[in-house]
């Protein structure tokens, strides 16, 4: 059984039914890592949110999403809630908005653990410390006692990773998890994800091809709600077929152009990429 089977997924918003995702279909293997790449407005984030049932109220969803064989489209909230954290979890872009600023980090992670395993009352604190250690915190005790604003950006993101993995979900959705981080911390978090996502399936949403390449085997390229190209990441980078993909690859290769020369822009390849 595939981890995810998405068929003809369409997401539209509001009364005017603005289409964000247009008949999207793909499958995700049990331990596969799939990248979804596109720019703002391509529908990539909406796709990620749809997989975990976190779309806003004004979203109209049609099509099918099978998570471990269970249909998510049309499922009521009370059926979806127990899945979150246990079978599917999400790592967001902005740690400061995903973490509660008034609650100590250890307690927030503990709440996630307790949500699904109420019987393990005694061992929760130890489990929290264990996870903080696993995500690379050098002083788990201190971090657990801290509030989010007392930690660095990298530490906060590690805490988010811990929260997302604490209940060992089979599918982890990452929505631009390193976009707000500087280049060194980004590298560390990507290495961490590479390590911790072993044995799980992952959907990695990003606008940065170079980042996706670090973590994923396969990638979907999205433009205006549709998939324009898909395949193994190295194939796509080596031999991009669709003009938009070619533009993405060129945009990621700034280093190849000597100083003073003009950088190739998306509009050189396609009309869909005007800044």
């Amino acid at each position: 059984m595939n981890r995810l089977e998405v068929t003809d997924l369409t997401v539209a918003f509001g009364r005017r039914r603005t289409v964000a995702v247009d008949r999207l279909s793909f499958t995700l293997g049990q331990h596969e890592r799939l990248g979804i790449i596109g720019q703002s407005g391509s529908g990539k984030s909406v796709t990620g949110l749809a997989m975990i049932g976190l779309l806003p109220e004004n979203a109209h969803v049609s099509g099918s999403i099978l998570l471990n064989g269970r249909e998510l489209v049309g499922a009521p909230e009370r059926e979806l809630r127990p899945l979150r954290g246990d079978e599917v979890s999400m790592i967001f872009q902005e740690p400061m908005t995903a973490l509660d600023p008034t609650m100590r980090v250890g307690r927030q992670i503990g709440e996630v653990v307790a949500l699904h395993h109420r019987d393990r009352r005694g061992g929760i604190h130890d489990e929290v410390l264990d996870w903080l250690g696993r995500v690379g915190m050098t002083d788990p005790e201190r971090v657990a006692r801290s509030f989010p604003d007392e930690l660095s950006g990298g530490q906060r993101q590690r805490a988010l990773v811990a929260m997302a993995l604490a209940n060992e979900p089979g599918l982890v959705i990452c929505d631009e998890p390193t976009t707000a981080l500087d280049v060194i911390v980004q590298r560390q978090i990507l290495d961490l994800l590479d390590e911790q996502l072993q044995g799980r399936a992952s959907l990695f949403v990003s606008h940065d091809l170079a980042v996706v390449r670090q973590v994923c085997d396969r990638v979907l390229v999205m433009l205006q709600g549709r998939v324009v190209e898909s395949g193994k990441i190295d194939d796509i980078i080596e031999d991009p077929q669709h003009p938009y993909t070619r533009g993405l690859v060129a945009a990621a290769r700034i280093g190849n152009h000597p100083r003073g020369t003009r950088l190739p822009t998306m509009t050189d390849f396609t009309e869909g990429g005007r800044a």
Binding site: F13, G14, T18, G41, N58
Partner: peptide, 8 residues
């Protein structure tokens, strides 16, 4: 209040 803006 910043409403849930429609993700276009």
């Amino acid at each position: 209040d910043p409403k849930l803006r429609e993700i276009a």
